Simulated scan of single mutants.
Amino acid sequence: MGQYRGLADIYDYLVAGVDFEGWIDYVEDILKRFSCKPCTVLDLACGTGNTIIPFARRGYKAYGLDLSAEMIEQARTKTRQEGLHIEFTVKDIREFAMSEPVGLVTCFHDGLNYIIREEDIAKVFCCVCSCLAPDGLFIFDLNAVSWIGATADGPVVIEEPDLTIIYETVHNREDGLWSVALTGFVREGELFRRFKETHCERGYAPELIKGLLSAAGFETLGVYDAFTFNDVHQRSRRHFYVARKSYECR
């Protein structure tokens, strides 16, 4: 089974403790820091909409892209329930285009760590550069190489009355890869539905990412320890990047 198919129905339960409104508060602090006032936001790898719905609540014109049709369906349902309008599209973020420029492009919660080849990261960056307004910003996060390498191998079990999830984690530290084989059992009436997925992430060093951004036509404005404006350090778990089109590409 592909990624985020069987998991889509329970994903929001698993991330219930994440303060996504706080994430967008931080993004708006970044926008103020760089005097950027976008009206439109495109969220890549938007999943069930947790990092684009808060933008729509705040009055932005919002778009979301994700490769998983199941995750997009969850996002559409949540959006309808709140009476919001967000244009969601099932699309590979390595090959997309927009009909009009957008003022802000985001990709959060490990979305780019799932792109495990440098050349594919470069494709994403080129697509973003093509759709971004001249003074717009590209803001995204990546799990740090050191954090991915430090997580323990072996099984982890989550047991709840209506679901059980078993994670089997394997590292390839030489290549910076982190693979998780996931088996889930979700209650449906008197029975449990079983699903299996494999998720793989890669960590990227900041210098490599800045080089790929530059090659795609971006100027890197900052790389921050998550939710601060401090420089990244060895204990940083998550890095936030802020980039703007270079003057030559505007």
Rank of each mutant, 00 (worst) to 15 (best):
I24S: 01
L67N: 04
R193K: 15
E201H: 09
A75C: 08
Y247S: 09
D175E: 13
V156Q: 15
F20T: 10
G49A: 10
C131V: 15
L67W: 00
W147E: 11
G6S: 08
A69H: 05
I165D: 07
R193C: 10
E95N: 15
K78L: 09
H109Q: 03
I10V: 15
D153Y: 00
A181V: 14
E82Y: 11
L163I: 08
D153P: 09
L31R: 03
R235P: 02
C129I: 01
P206I: 05
K245F: 09
E160G: 03
G154P: 02
I148T: 02
L42V: 07
F185D: 00
R235Y: 12
E160N: 05
K78T: 02
N50S: 15
L112A: 11
Y114R: 09
S236V: 08
K91H: 08
R193V: 13
V223D: 00
V232I: 15
V124F: 03
W147I: 04
R173P: 00
E190N: 15
G22C: 09
S146Q: 14
E207F: 06
G217M: 10
F34M: 12
F195E: 08
Y11H: 12
Y114M: 10
T220K: 01
L104I: 08
T48Y: 08
A205M: 01
E201I: 04
T228A: 02
R250L: 10
F125H: 14
A243L: 07
C131E: 01
H85E: 10
T51Q: 11
L191E: 05
L132A: 13
G47M: 12
V242A: 01
A69D: 03
R244E: 01
L42T: 05
T228P: 02
R237W: 03
V41A: 01
I121Y: 01
C129A: 15
E82N: 08
H199V: 08
F138Y: 12
D43H: 06
Y247W: 03
H109G: 05
T169E: 07
F88Y: 14
P101M: 03
Q74T: 07
R250Q: 11
I30C: 06
A216H: 01
A144H: 13
G217T: 07
D25H: 13
T151I: 12
H199W: 05
I86T: 06
P101N: 04
K196T: 11
G64H: 06
Y167Q: 14
K123M: 12
Y63A: 03
D25M: 06
F229I: 00
A152F: 06
E70S: 14
F125K: 07
S35Q: 13
Y247R: 12
L112C: 03
D12N: 14
K123C: 10
R5A: 05
R94Q: 15
